[in-house]
Design a protein around this nucleic acid. Structure first.
Lengths: 224, 224
DNA sequence: CGTTTACTTGAATGCTCTCAACCAGCGTGG
DNA sequence: CCACGCTGGTTGAGAGCATTCAAGTAAACG
């Protein structure tokens, strides 16, 4: 379906912006390969990452409906993307209610993730905050087949994880060490392992409901 | 348009739940009068308010598309609501692309607000955090004609504002006092005034882009 | 009036931040 | 081959913002 859309593919180098804050794009971007983030910069130069996108995600579908971007989208790693004109999306809304619903749902799931990030950053201590972030990352990577056993290659370094958890880089580091010490996390180079999924889930109070998984997907997850 | 939908009206007392976490509603709720909040409870009993809804908002339109509620919706004040069956919404998607787009947009604006709340809670100090929250509240109330001059009746007390800003109630109180001391805020009883809108906006780094206002609405706001 | 709600205040604790180094691995270029 | 710079991770110390606990005030309410 989506493949049939008119679109142009391109490659974006790690660190480059895909969509800039303040603009009004006329295309929306699908991530084919690589990881994209959405972020805001503040006056003092601090950054807040408000979303991570894995392969298969539309990373700025909302730009189809909003007047102006209130944040930027960037390639976290090198990204292969595919840009779909907003006119094509408009035609989908006109003619394909089923597909429209699917696209709408994807933006609504994004919003659900935003809400859980709020809870995570606002009301959880650093340890549970980071643990929850890692739980989500693991599940979302597993959904797209990017995990191996209980491990995965992290697309974020500790400084980037700091911007996604609203912590300082130093504190992320110390929190990682604490998770390691508790036997909940391994982190060597870019490779993260979760030796005790149940323990991590419990510490994080992680409940994947907000990811809107199917029953089948939930079952696949419970293995860890 | 929306008025033509089949729907049932009802009144919900302040503090009562409208939708409970974990359920899968078959209706979505439009707030006709009063204020609704969305919130999550954590194990230790703390609460995070992830959204505020003013009259005219759909407060759980996303439940139309998601399998299960990952949070609850409650009446902050007494609410007059109107419940629309999901089948009716499904028919809109089938037959009314224009209206579908409108509804979709409203959920996407919600997501944009979520993002700004993340930035606000995650990367702003208490003073700017609270100031930003109050700026948004003022603008949204003004849009629905619930302000008078530079003031409004707040639907949230300080404890509730704490749950919406991820602060403690005590610290909200101290921050309110600091805003007062700086001449940026008046708060007597339920009545809040903003004597220096420009100053408050500057302190909060408040940029209403994320509220997706029309040019006209933006102009109306700049008066303060 | 007694009670409740909402707001206010003080003191002590502590989590997290900032600043400043330092280290290890890695790729590049002399 | 080694020196160099860069990235990413690690560590220590000190400061400070925000929290918790506890108590007190004041208006509102039945």
């Amino acid at each position: 379906m989506i493949r049939a859309l008119p679109s142009t593919e391109r490659v974006v180098a790690a660190g480059r912006d895909i969509v800039a804050q303040g603009t009004s794009p006329h295309v929306s971007t699908l991530v084919l390969d690589g990881f994209a983030i959405r972020y805001n910069l503040l006056a003092q130069g601090t950054r807040m990452i408000s979303a991570i996108h894995v392969p298969g995600d539309f990373c700025d579908l909302h730009s189809f409906l909003l007047r102006k971007m209130d944040h930027s989208v960037a390639a976290l790693t090198e990204c292969h993307i595919c840009q779909v004109p907003h006119e094509a999306l408009a035609q989908i809304v006109e003619r394909h209610p089923g597909l429209t619903r699917l696209l709408w749902t994807s933006t609504v799931v994004d919003a659900g993730i935003h809400r859980q990030w709020m809870v995570r950053m606002g009301r959880r201590a650093a340890l549970a905050n980071l643990a929850h972030f890692i739980c989500e990352l693991f599940v979302r990577l597993k959904l797209v087949g990017m995990t191996t056993g209980n491990g995965f290659m992290t697309p974020l370094n500790q400084a980037q994880m700091a911007d996604a958890t609203a912590m300082s880089a130093v504190h992320v580091n110390r929190t990682v060490q604490e998770l390691r010490r508790r036997g909940l996390l391994g982190w060597e180079g870019r490779h993260i392992t979760l030796p005790d999924w149940e323990g991590l889930v419990e510490l994080a109070e992680f409940d994947p409901t907000y990811l809107n998984l199917t029953e089948e997907q939930v079952r696949a997850m419970s293995l860890g």
